[in-house]
C-alpha cells in the first residue's frame, strides 16, 4: 500500500533524472573548444584589477536574520492553525494565544523598522 510519500520520492527522482539528462545531453551535443578568452569574467572587457567578491552591505545580512526570526515565528503558529476551529469552540484561550503571537511579531517588526533596519538609500 502506497501512503503518498513513496510517490513524492518517485516525483523527486523524476526531477533529478530529468535534470541530469538535460545536462548530459547538453554536454554530449555541445562543442568543446576551450579558449582562454572564453573563460574570462563577463564584465567590461579589460583585465580585472580587483577581486569580484568584496565586502557587501551588512543590510543584506540583517534582512536574512530578520527573515529567520519572522519565518520561524510564523511556522510556530502553523500547528495552532491546524486545530484552531476545534479549539475555538472551548472559548477565547486559543484566540488569545494567536493574538499574543501576532502581537509579539508586530512589536518586533515595529522595533526593527524603528531601528531603520529595512531602509535602503
Amino acid at each position: 500500500m502506497l501512503n503518498g510519500y513513496e510517490t513524492i520520492v518517485m516525483y523527486l527522482g523524476m526531477s533529478l533524472i530529468a535534470i541530469f539528462a538535460m545536462l548530459g545531453i547538453s554536454a554530449l551535443l555541445g562543442p568543446f573548444r576551450p579558449k582562454r578568452n572564453k573563460a574570462t569574467t563577463y564584465e567590461c572587457g579589460v583585465p580585472l584589477f580587483e577581486a569580484s567578491i568584496k565586502r557587501y552591505d551588512v543590510k543584506y545580512y540583517l534582512v536574512a536574520v530578520l527573515f529567520l526570526v519572522f519565518d520561524l515565528e510564523t511556522v510556530l503558529i502553523y500547528p495552532i492553525a491546524l486545530d484552531y476551529r476545534a479549539l475555538a469552540v472551548h472559548g477565547w484561550g486559543v484566540f488569545l494565544e494567536v493574538f499574543i503571537f501576532v502581537a509579539v511579531l508586530l512589536l518586533g517588526l515595529v522595533y526593527a523598522l524603528k531601528k531603520r533596519a529595512i531602509e535602503w538609500d
Binding site: 547538453s26 551535443l29 555541445g30 582562454r36 573563460a39 569574467t41 563577463y42 580585472l48
Partner: peptide, 12 residues
C-alpha cells in the same frame, strides 16, 4: 539551441 551550446565554466 540551448542543448547545442558550449558549456563554459569561467576560469575564475
Amino acid at each position: 539551441k540551448l542543448f547545442t551550446k558550449e558549456d563554459i565554466v569561467p576560469a575564475k
